[in-house]
Amino acid sequence: MNEVLLEVDTIHTFIGQFHILEGVSLKVRAGSITALLGRNGAGKTTTLRSIMGLNPPRSGSIRLGGEAINGRPAYEIAYLGVGYVPEHRAIFRDLTVEENLRLAERKRGDLARRSDFIMSLFPDLKRFYRHPGGKLSGGQQQMLAIARALVPDNRLLLIDEPSEGLAPIIVEQIVAALRQMATETTILLVEQNFALAAQLADEYYILDDGRSVQHGRMADLTRDHATIDKYLGAG
């Protein structure tokens, strides 16, 4: 087994007055894809945002490669090598594809160095390189959002619902890209589509009502229909 890259230990996160995460713990091993599963509102997105520093947890600890990162501002966490692909893509609509990618550079030359790899994963982006992000289709915007996280050397990618609302053929392309990416980095993936998550992930964590309730190897979960029914609805 590989070493643990990310360790989240009983974090509690509030949004305004609402206690959203009530003790989430998880470990992500370097070089793996870990899926974060659970119903709508279970706290999956908030977990990613807590790790990223966008909704800092009020208690508990988050360690990246052994170093505590909870309480640090988001931009510092990003600098430690965490890439974030949010739900609903959040690309910059008024910026061109090129500018979107350039903005993600952490040092000069990042984009030039990684451009070939990114364009081989998502050839569409090359075609629309100088078009504003807002003019892209939903699938292309998702590709751009993922590509943005690939520009710098990230140790960990937090990817939220990459398949949401996309046509099956686009989803296939994105799955292939995620597989390719997993060979060189570590991914923590939130995915509603269980079949897709099962296909990609090595390990899983299930969140229910703000708590992490179960985890294990993905291969075991696919046979465990009781758990799937209990926590993931009609999965």
Binding site: M52, L54, P73, A74, Y75, A78, Y79, Y84, P86, A90, F92, R93, D94, L95, E99, N100, R102, L103, A104, R106, R148, P152
Partner: peptide
């Protein structure tokens, strides 16, 4: 300029700019 790019992006979504490793403050 890069600053201009950050401003244009920040007008739309400051949080995402932050998550890209830019000190928005």
């Amino acid at each position: 300029t890069r600053l201009g790019m950050i401003i244009r992006a920040g007008v739309q979504d400051g949080e995402m700019v932050q998550a890209l490793g830019i000190n928005v403050r």
